[in-house]
Design a protein around this nucleic acid. Structure first.
Lengths: 386, 386
DNA sequence: TTGAATATTCAAATGATTTGAGTTAATCCA
DNA sequence: TGGATTAACTCAAATCATTTGAATATTCAA
């Protein structure tokens, strides 16, 4: 049995590939940059960066953005990502519908779509995914030859586990290889992930965590998910199922029985109130509905408990709260969660708040799915070259 | 504000450095290997590996180990790590004593030592560390010019946090920079870590986790620590304090109030029995002491609870249990912890047991400290080159 | 004994970065 | 206003490490 090496060897060609990605990643992070500035940041010579930028401009990945004067010498020519330099398809599969979005290389959505599902079996889902892919490409012809890949988000956990069949997972998907099926359906490289990880990476590339390399993302999907980003890399676990925090027991039951969309729906249903969507919840919150406020009290306490666990186990710079909840509700939770005292994150001189609100709304994970593809293009991989 | 790039650029020199480390890492993992075999594993040409191996042999890092016949063609010349090719000092600072060990490059201890401490203030500790360093080098003169660095283990958490002063942390160390102090004291590059992380990495390089890239290590120190290894890399968190699982609440209190060495000592003390060291605990366990068995019952339940949290949050291939406990007690815990059903790790076709016993004994973390240095030498770093 | 398979080495070619000299264009300062 | 200074950028040659291709050595198998 030969162990797969964690670190392959490298050569001139692979170095160039890596440096290209490093340049792109640097430009993305800064918006626009000049050659010499990039060279300093990456510990390369300006000449090398010059060569690479010439390549990237020729490939349509970078655009010249004028000169930046202000300093002493020759004003640097600024370069920025060409939004049309590449596109990524994001697909989120839910029990009742598929959400799809096409993102340009700067992370801006070009098209978004919702397709109702008749069933969740692979055949039905794959047919709709193929169709939405075709529709998207005919609507945005420029993307056709510049597709970087597709990010797919499905409710986890993946494979057969002890929590399968318990919550919201899809029927008919436990014994197939979703990555291969989707890759075959759209004819693109595919990144598969759960909703929380995708949303976390979106937050990292284009959201509140843009300058936060190590953070945890608590995501309201159907249940409650946790995305872990450590030094810019997603922590997916050995089998891609890391972050299933919803199944962790807290005082009062499983965390996602207390803190999730399903939980608030159940709670309100007991009071005879139907909460079908985010807008409905937002309305109830604006009215300070008494039953909702009771739920929020319990949810805040559970959130504090979750913070204790996440902070002590993962020691992030901050925890971001986001997903399919109204902004106002997320803000309320951020403000009212009891900040745990007994935690390594309880620092007197912390630079960031312990808890922050991230992106919210229905499309968060869908956009995140496409972001995973962008991330792969813009940053060098952890170990294996593509 | 310029963000530090996650990925620096590379060039020929850095490529060589990386390939050298990759070759060393590969040889370490396999014991002995031939040039062509290494080349295949690393996706390099045999010629490149040949050049690098010539370098490494000249530098005394690799040794020729004879030819391996058996296959078809020319028997490959085997190479293995030269144990005397490099040495790493491991230092563990505890409230009452310092433990020190010198490891050769293969991870075998050359010398070990225990020094009682009069106090834990930096000045006292540093003086003893300087002394033990000098003693070690005069006892093993061959190591003098081949020191790769020193690994230091101290009770976490580092810096000022909400759990400072609660448990077993050292007084006088909260507002200094231990890494700089130690590096200055021994004149070597220093890796600083907590006990659980160090022990986890020792397990990864030379223990039961040799072929397990993603695992969690529950470590019995003074409290209870958690080392997280993800795809071969330690997950240290943003401030190096990840894995403080002892402070996580479980039914009945904080986890380390139920599952730790201090906890069993307290429990036995209530029954009027003094447990001062591992041997004493081992004796009680062999006698199936009634009070100890009661503690073990509660500890097993808490361990099951910890497994639920760790498995669902981190999704490791396995959880390793080790540290300052008798083998027999660890085995008992491994056998009796209730395996959580509600967990993503509850797989019908799992290749590894959910819970395994790792290295035990007093020196585990000390050896682990030195291992961190070896690991840095033998594997390419995550992002920044040295 | 001969041919196939495998490991290794040698010398030349290749690919990418670096080095060093030179050009351009802005600010600074007398 | 104008020369000195600073900084970005480019060109051509040098450098470094890997790759390529040919040649050699050793073993197994027919």
């Amino acid at each position: 049995m030969v162990a797969i090496p964690l670190q392959l060897g490298t050569n001139a060609e692979r170095s160039r590939h890596r440096n290209r990605q490093a340049v792109l990643g640097q430009v993305r992070a800064a918006g626009t940059m000049g050659r010499a500035e990039i060279a300093r940041a990456l510990s390369l010579t300006t000449q090398t960066v010059s060569n690479i930028i010439a390549d990237l401009v020729a490939d349509g990945m970078l655009l010249e953005k004028g000169r930046l004067s202000g300093g002493r010498g020759l004003p640097a020519i600024q370069y920025g990502l060409n939004p049309e330099g590449g596109f990524a398809l994001g697909i989120e599969v839910r029990p009742d519908a598929i959400f799809a979005a096409l993102l340009d290389m700067q992370g801006h959505p070009v098209t978004t779509e919702r397709i109702a599902l008749a069933g969740t079996e692979p055949s039905v889902v794959l047919a709709e995914v193929t169709a939405v892919h075709a529709r998207t490409l005919s609507a945005v012809p420029i993307a056709k030859d510049r597709m970087l890949g597709a990010g797919i988000v499905m409710p986890g956990p993946f494979g057969v586990t002890g929590v399968s069949g318990v919550g919201s997972d899809l029927h008919g998907w436990q014994h197939v290889d979703p990555e291969a099926l989707f890759s075959n359906a759209v004819g693109l490289p595919v990144v598969l992930s759960n909703d929380a990880n995708a949303a976390a990476m979106a937050e990292r590339l284009h959201g509140v965590a843009k300058d936060i390399p190590t953070f945890a993302y608590l995501y309201f999907g159907a249940g409650l998910g946790l995305g872990l980003v450590h030094q810019g890399h997603l922590i997916g676990g050995a089998f891609g199922n890391a972050g299933e925090i919803g199944h962790v027991p807290v005082p009062g039951g499983k965390l996602e029985d207390i803190l999730s969309r399903l939980s608030v729906q159940r709670h309100m249903a007991v009071a005879g109130k139907v909460v079908s969507d985010i807008d409905g919840l937002d309305r109830l919150f604006r009215e300070r509905d008494a039953d909702l406020m009771i739920w929020l009290e319990g949810a805040s306490a559970a959130l504090g408990h979750a913070m204790t666990i996440v902070e002590n186990m993962f020691d992030p710079q901050t925890i971001v709260l986001g997903g399919a909840m109204p902004d106002a509700v997320l803000d309320h939770l951020v403000a009212h969660a009891p900040v745990p005292r007994m935690s390594v994150a309880n620092r007197p001189n912390a630079a960031l708040p312990r808890l922050m609100r991230g992106a919210s709304g229905r499309m968060t994970a869908t956009l995140g799915a496409a972001t995973l593809v962008l991330n792969r293009t813009l940053t060098a991989p952890l170990s294996h070259a593509d």
